[in-house]
Design a binder for these strands. Structure first.
Length: 491
RNA sequence: CGGGAGGUAGUUCAGCCCGGUAGAAUACCUGGUUUGGGACCAGGGGGUCGCAGGUUCGAAUCCUGUCCUCCCGACCA
């Protein structure tokens, strides 16, 4: 037992850290708050990115790239926006280093001070809208549907691998439209894209909703979100899509001529998901033996381990396996044959379980005689012996089954952790003892929301879309309320 | 940013209180035996003790500063 994972119920935070580190997803770095994404973790991100990119393009978007640096003055053009981000910005003040005249190594050259400081982008609305001003003149230039894949920096006080790092990778879509209706439709469309991606590809069930004013993006009219539930009962915002109204158009003076040749401000949206999704993926599915990857985005879907006595037998096994590998690859399955001799089968089993590879196939001497293979699935930790005949297509079906099973398990857990509360004592008790989402009435004020956060650490995660209207009384103040909202403690 | 813990071999850690040749396990290399759930024997290589100062004849150990990480809190589009 070289590297045991801390059990979930002993120390959830440590369990999470162990999975990320020992599963080979990421490492800490020498830079405060910044992590190294390791090849296995990056392969996972690439799979997620490629699928999302396809979905963006299928909905008419194109990719572009805007600068990492933003002039300080840009950030302050939109009042709410700067208010929201000012506290966590990295600032570039100089552009040159020099040898310390006192012999103390290398220092910042005081003569190389920038006229205007540059902000390392915490998000790109300002630089993009400053650019869109030049790109948009007529309604014929609209809609403008652009996405960028980039890194951003937010100087967080307390960081956690993937969940909250000072620098992270993400995509940010920024679109411009002629009408509010069209921009709102875009906002909702991208929310649907995110929800579909989370559920169908990551096997993570999400609730679509709209944020309250308190939780809204700085500079947005409305923030839509998908909220997922982790195994410790805390919620995770997995993606956001913002209707920005004309706020940025006004701040950056982006107008277009409509068909009647009148100048109007354009309507905007922005939407993003980040490497934080990986943290959510880990916490939604994994167990005490390690990661569990949903097949559709798993870096490796199938690993094959030979069990042999002597070179001769290994050769015989390899012959059969290489045929199987070829078949699986033909079916588009990501497969690895691990015939290395530096670890015994049991060690390999544990290792690939830690990394969450969905399916493991073991083939040994008995299998050679019987023309069989032992097939183990990571999600349920069950094993079965299957015939080598037709094995590749059976594996393909099994991968689909695992994908569906992972989603269903997560959904069953999530659904059983949405609890209604109508009395304050119940509300507190559910949050403290059971966790998860609590569906309760709220009087609609930010003050009440703050008070509830103060008392319980829970925030309103969202007002679900298509929410059932139901008269009731606020869980805290007893004032009248027209609908329930979802509360939870959150990451 | 406040409170607590930590940084010594690739990894997990002992050594520090009470200064005196830097250790264990595991991993790695070589050879052999092994291989159906984290193998065994023999031999071998590997560490500026986070970094920078200071005290001292002598510092992993004592002092000061600093960087990084973890946990709790505050903060968190």
């Amino acid at each position: 037992m070289a590297s045991a994972i801390t059990p979930r119920d002993k120390d959830y935070s440590q369990w999470y850290n162990d999975l990320v580190l020992k599963g080979g997803l990421a490492d800490y770095s020498a830079v405060r708050g910044c992590m190294v994404i390791k090849p296995y973790g990056f392969a996972l991100w690439e799979n997620m990115r490629d699928q999302l990119d396809k979905m963006f393009k299928d909905t008419g978007h194109v990719n572009a790239y805007f600068p990492l640096f933003i002039p300080k003055s840009f950030l302050s053009r939109e009042a709410a926006h700067v208010e929201g981000f000012a506290k966590e910005c990295a600032v570039v003040t100089h552009y040159r280093l020099m040898n310390d005249p006192n012999g103390g190594g290398i220092v910042v050259d005081p003569d190389a001070k920038l006229e205007e400081e540059l902000i390392v982008r915490p998000t790109s609305e300002t630089i993009i809208w400053n650019t869109y001003k030049d790109w948009i003149q007529s309604y014929r230039d609209l809609p403008l549907l652009i996405n960028q894949w980039a890194n951003v920096v937010r100087w967080e006080m307390r960081t956690r691998l993937f969940l909250r790092t000072a620098e992270f990778l993400w995509q940010e879509g920024h679109t411009a439209h002629a009408t509010a209706e069209e921009a709102i439709a875009e906002t909702k469309q991208m929310l649907d894209v995110y929800a579909q991606f989370a559920e169908e590809w990551m096997a993570v069930p999400v609730i679509k909703g709209v944020k309250t004013a308190n939780e809204r993006f700085a500079g947005a009219e409305d923030t839509y979100c998908i909220e997922a539930l982790m195994q410790d009962g805390k919620a995770l915002q997995a993606g956001t899509s913002h209707f920005l109204g004309q706020n940025f158009a006004k701040a950056f003076d982006v107008k277009f001529s409509n068909k009647e040749n009148q100048l109007e401000y354009v309507w905007a949206t922005s939407w993003g998901v980040s490497t934080r999704l990986i943290g959510g993926l880990v916490m939604a599915h994994s167990d005490d033996d390690g990661l569990i990857m949903p097949p559709k985005i798993a870096p490796l879907q199938v690993v094959i381990v030979p069990i042999y006595k002597g070179e001769e037998q290994l050769k015989a096994i390899s012959e059969k396996v290489l045929v199987l590998v070829k078949e699986l690859k033909t079916l588009g399955i990501r497969v690895k044959y691990d015939d290395t001799d530096n670890a015994r089968p049991g060690w390999k089993f544990a290792e690939y379980e830690m990394k969450g590879v969905p399916v493991r196939i073991a083939i040994g001497g008995r299998d050679l005689e019987n023309n069989t293979a032992e097939v183990a699935r990571r999600d349920e930790k069950t094993k079965q012996t299957l015939s080598m005949d037709g094995l590749s297509s059976a594996i393909k079906i099994l991968l689909d089954e695992i994908q569906a099973n992972m989603f269903n398990k997560a959904k069953t857990y999530r659904d059983s952790h949405i609890t209604q509360a109508d009395a304050w004592d119940d509300f507190v008790k559910i949050l403290n003892e059971k966790g998860g989402f609590v569906s309760a009435h709220w009087d609609g004020t930010g003050e009440t929301e703050d008070a509830i956060k103060e008392k319980t650490k829970a925030t309103i995660r969202c007002i679900p879309l298509n929410n059932e209207q139901e008269a009731g009384n606020c869980i805290l103040t007893g004032k009248p309320s027209a609908q329930r909202v979802l509360f939870a403690q959150a990451y």
